[in-house]
Amino acid sequence: MGRRLSAFNLVSLALGLAFLYLPILILVIYSFNDSRLVTVWGGFSTRWYVQLAEDHALQEAALTSLGIAVASATLATVLGTLAALALTRLGRFRGRLPFSAMIYAPLVMPEVITGLSLLLLFVAVELDRGFLTVTIAHTTLTMCFVAVVVQSRLGSFDSSLEEAAQDLGCPPLKTFLTVTLPVIAPAIVAGFLLAFSLSLDDVVLASFTTGPGATTLPIRIYSDVRLGVKPEINAVCTIFIAVIAVVVILASLVTRLGERHGAAG
């Protein structure tokens, strides 16, 4: 730990970070470009952000995305937590293995396939595509991420905490609400934030399952860019990156907080 970085390590670190973040950095810089031309620097300006404030279509898309993210992350958190509980608590019930494999399948399944199958389902049950269908699709994808996060926390959960609560006169359901849930809450919150950011930046599932009137922000950006990169898009993306960064930082903070508590218990 205390070793100083050698020149080689420094270079590889710089290269790696540059590879990851240079494109994003350029995007952020160009969002403050005064020139209309994407590749020519015309001095610092915030005019694209101002212009963004007047672009109602983009704002609407952003609101739609936010709404879908909140709704689907909430749903995914509830379902994912329940699945994690079932997997860790019920011990070796019949069909536990296939069940856990099925929970994790969407993690590795190509999104195109998930999207297509959901589309077929919605068509079959004649569900009008829009806000609801995208929310369902995102829930399907993100609940397994929540399940994974919560399950790993439950694995290290000291079950004598629940016994202690019951020993002190607390019935099982109340024990779950007043002891288990608060102790695993950091994992649940982290799972929610993960689901939220996954939903916010999804293009594939959304493009399969969306309909008129429910264009999400990533789809909007995607279709705009096909007509040529506009500086406003850079500004939108910069805001987008800021939001995602805040969410990710929050998630890792919450997780770390939970680890500290867990270690003490």
Binding site: D167, L168, V179, A264
Partner: peptide, 20 residues
Amino acid sequence: VPPYRRPVNMMFQSYALFPH
């Protein structure tokens, strides 16, 4: 009688203190 209705209390080896 379930554990939460028994007038006995236990001190656990791991202490099982509620961390929150």
